[in-house]
Structure formats: C-alpha cells, structure tokens
C-alpha cells in the first residue's frame, strides 16, 4: 500500500479568543489530491481552522506545514471565502483577470484561462456585465472562479454551496469533483451540509466546539455508528425521556440506546418490523409518544449524534 503524501499537516493547531477555545489542538494531515470535508455545525471552528491553515490567521499555538513545489508557496493555495468577496463595479471577466494579474499568472495564458473559467462556471454570457448585476448564484460561481485563476494546487472552499438552490449545488459539486479528477487539485472544504460532505468528500473530519472528533472516509464513519436502523422516538413530555430510555434498553432486539436532545434514539435490526413493539412497550408503561421516525441507513448526522450525543443543528 503506497504511503500517502500529505500536502498540509497541522500540529496541535490552537486558536483562543479570550476564554473561547475556537480550535482546540487540531492534528490533521490532508492528502495530496483528495477532497477533504470539514463537517460541523456553525461555530464548530471549521473556518478558523482553515484560515490558520492558509496563513490568514495567526494561531495561538501549534503549527501548519504546507508541502508545495519549489517556488510555489503562497501561490499554490487559493481560498474561496464563504462570503461573496468580489469587486462589484468590475465585470466577471475583470474580476477574474485582476486576480490573475495579482497572482502573476503569465500574460500568455491568462486570457485563455479566464475564458475557460467563465465557460466552466457558466458565466460566459454575463462576462461583461457588472458583478453587482449578477444573480446570487452567479456571484457565488464568480467567487469560486476568482480563486481558480491562479491554478492552485490546493483549493480551500469555505461553505462553497451556501445560498445555492439544489440544482446549482449539484452542478457545483460536479465541477468541484472535476477539479480533483481532471486537474489533480487537493480540495479542502468546510460545510454544514451532511449531503455535501458525504457525496463530495474523500475523507470527512467532524468538528464540534473547536475539536476534531473524528476523521475518516464517509462510508467508514457511517459504518462505525453500528449495524441496524435508527429509530427516534419523541415523547409528549420530554422530561420523561430518561425513564423511557430505561424501558427501551431492556427490550429484546434493541442494539443501542441514547438520550438525544430530550428524545430517544435507538438502533435495532429490522426497525420497521419492530417499531410497533417498542412503542407499545412504552405506551403500556404510561408514556405518551408524540413522534416516531425511522432511518434505514446511517447518515453522517447519525455519526455526529453518535459522537456528541446531540442532534446536528447547522
């Protein structure tokens, strides 16, 4: 098995803001040519972590090592910020072209590169309109295009599909995947969308409250939660969930139980066949059930719940 080559390595990377520990001792290796997804709710520390990784933010302690080709440092890492960062009085062409000039893209290749990006991101028709006149989706694509003109080997995307409609989101995912597959770029993305992290990332790091909880391939992460289906039962009186949990735990066929956000999460084989048995057992003991939900396959949300004991609230 070949030894993976890391392009970014962090060592106990920490950022404190007064009493707040925004990133808590992050140790991480990003492999060359992979799409790495930072998944976590808002405030988990994802953006802070990547800002330190690309040198925009001074860490309180710890370090970052970026492996790049000679003479490439700085130019080889591009960041596409979560916020739309563009010059509204310039056209899409001018915005991308200006960033190319600033990154010293050779004059001979700059024009063709800008043209190609405009075509790839479906902005060619609006190339001469002012950025302020573009739709929100187009502005977000332009935001990405401005990060690509320097042809970086590492591309950091901070919440790339924020504010996009589902169709635009899927197109964007496809494009991001093509950047990896066709151009061999290493892509680090932060997201609070389970589906985005799951479908796009080769590896996912789940962050919560500044800590990196786990890193693995999405499939492995889901597998780690355990066998069976997931059933969530909510009671009319959430205060009784602890007592109800004790009842459910003793039932035959229940593999795992958890009190999550004043509801019961349990794992069982053949959940559909057994759910009536579980709910009846609770009702017989006087618990009033308000809602029942069954998930046949594990999701990254289940992983998050499994790791934190809390529901994932973006």
């Amino acid at each position: 098995m070949p030894v993976p080559s890391y392009v970014i390595e962090t060592n106990n990377l920490t950022k404190e803001y007064g009493d707040l520990l925004a990133v808590d001792g992050l140790d991480l290796q990003i492999e060359k040519g992979e799409i790495f997804g930072f998944l976590g709710p808002n405030g988990a520390g994802k953006t802070t972590a990547i800002r330190m990784m690309v040198g925009l933010l001074e860490p309180t302690s710890g370090g970052v090592k970026i492996e790049v080709k000679d003479g490439e440092e700085g130019e080889s890492v591009a960041v596409c910020p979560q916020k739309l960062v563009l010059w509204e009085e310039l056209t899409p062409y001018e915005n991308i072209h200006f960033m190319g000039k600033m990154h010293d893209v050779p004059r001979g290749s700059l024009d063709s590169r800008v043209d190609q990006i405009l075509i790839d991101l479906d902005l060619d028709e609006k190339r001469d309109n002012l950025a302020s006149e573009l739709s929100g989706g187009m502005q977000r694509r332009l935001n990405l295009g401005m990060s690509l003109v320097q042809d970086p080997s590492i591309l950091v995307l901070d919440e790339p599909s924020a504010g996009l409609d589902p169709q635009s989101r899927y197109s964007l995912w496809e494009y991001i995947r093509s950047l990896k597959e066709e151009e061999g770029k290493t892509i680090i993305l932060t997201t609070h969308l389970m589906e985005e992290a799951d479908r796009l990332s080769d590896r996912v790091g789940i962050m919560d409250r500044g800590k990196l909880l786990t890193v693995d391939r999405p499939k492995q992460l889901k597998k780690s939660v355990g066998e069976g289906d997931s059933i969530r039962i909510e009671l009319t009186d959430p205060g009784q969930s602890e007592a109800a949990l004790r009842v459910v735990s003793s039932l035959e066929g229940v593999l795992e139980t958890k009190d999550v956000d004043q509801g019961i999460n349990l794992r069982a084989l053949d959940a559909v066949g057994q759910v009536t048995k579980f709910t009846r057992a609770l009702e017989d003991k006087g618990f009033e059930i308000s809602d029942v939900a069954i998930s046949r396959t594990n999701t990254l949300e289940d992983v998050f719940i499994h790791l934190t004991g809390r529901e994932f609230r973006p």
Partner: peptide, 13 residues
C-alpha cells in the same frame, strides 16, 4: 470590511 483585502493578501502583494 468586505473581505476583498483578504483575497489580495493571498497574492504576493
């Protein structure tokens, strides 16, 4: 404020 400076910071400006 709008973050455009942060974009420029990543170039060798």
């Amino acid at each position: 404020e709008e973050g455009t400076l942060e974009r420029l910071k990543l170039s060798r400006m």
